[in-house]
Write a protein that binds this DNA or RNA. Structure first.
Lengths: 204, 204
DNA sequence: GTCTATAAGGGGATAGAC
DNA sequence: GTCTATCCCCTTATAGAC
């Protein structure tokens, strides 16, 4: 792997572990056993590294969000949510210091906002689809509120469980998926509600 | 007002506006038109200011959380939630950089964790009460998940709306209360659900 | 591409005069 | 209680040799 790529990977790891505001360029260089001068040969500044990592994130999350045009059954939704959570976990530094990072980088803030919108729209598409099939019983207003809750939960789940559990475990993501599913649960038709409860049981 | 108190109030304002990690002791002193030396006469360091502000927060939120021993009707819950949101808003700097602040101050992290637990327990008490009255239809597991969602939403609502709306408006808190209420809505008996929908309409 | 050395600036914190 | 002056450390970023 080229030095430039190693810098990006090392930085991503450190950002996730320590929080972006707490990581210095010197720390990144130290971790890799290269000189700070070398780091600045490859990147103009810390912002440029952050920016490129954000582009990675944007591409990865975009690929997943573009998928759900076709209707998803309950199992598919489970998988879909999992994929979303995995990307969020991989770039959790963005979420852990969300307000802070975005307030210092307007360009990223705008892009992130668009991604949130995209997520909300994807949720709504899925819910409306379920509603049309008669599987989900909710009026448009309720669907709007539900989708907002879904996106909010997905956005902050990892941070929240970090705060309450101290550390992240292997189950953190599973629990996040489950938590989102419980938001949808009460709106489901009896049949699917039972199914979802069952899957949930085996899940935790 | 004594200088010591003025420092605390000014700091709280700056923390909320700029984020705790972005506020320097010099900035605080400048804002108040006192010298940095004077600030350090009253407080050993920045952490001591933060710590005392946290104590304020802890006391204020504690006072509200200790109340709901008696059962609350739907209107009372509305008010209760409002009070919680108001305290969170007054100390929103804690929530906006939650992981960051807590990772740098272990003592605060432990206390904050306890407050989250207290909030969850208060939610559960209210929900169980409603369930016993037959107003809320949910099994214990669903109530657990519901309470987690309630606390998570209350915790991150202000940060979330800052990110998606850019700025906070006068309605931010109202919308937060509404959003939490929609989490409970689908579990309610038809009667109360209609009532809550009605209140919600007039609310937004 | 990579290193060492270092400049420039900021932020936390203290000393000592008033 | 308050101010000015200052110190020290850390962080970013650059210059110039290899």
């Amino acid at each position: 792997m080229k030095t430039r790529d190693r810098i990006l990977h090392t930085t991503l790891e450190l950002f996730n572990e320590c929080g972006e505001p707490n990581v210095t360029t010197l720390q990144i260089a130290d971790e890799m056993d290269i000189s700070p001068g070398n780091l600045y040969y490859h990147f103009k500044n810390k912002t440029e590294i952050l920016s490129e990592l954000f582009d990675w994130y944007e591409r990865e999350i975009g690929e997943i969000l573009d998928v759900p045009e076709t209707s998803l059954d309950v199992e598919d939704q489970w998988l879909f949510l999992h994929l979303i959570f995995e990307v969020i976990a991989r770039y959790r530094f963005l979420y852990q210091d969300l307000v802070n990072v975005m307030s210092r980088h307007e360009r990223l803030a705008n892009k992130f906002k668009k991604i949130i919108t995209k997520k909300t729209n994807a949720s709504r598409l899925i819910c409306q689809n379920l509603a049309e099939q008669g599987i989900l019983n909710a009026n448009p207003k309720e669907i709007d509120a539900l989708c907002k809750s879904i996106v909010l939960t997905a956005t902050y789940w990892i941070s929240f469980s970090t705060v309450i559990d101290g550390e992240q475990s292997d189950d953190t993501l599973n629990q996040g998926v489950y938590q989102v599913m419980t938001l949808v649960l009460p709106y489901l038709r009896e049949e699917e509600r039972a199914l979802l409860r069952e899957v949930g049981e085996s899940y935790l």
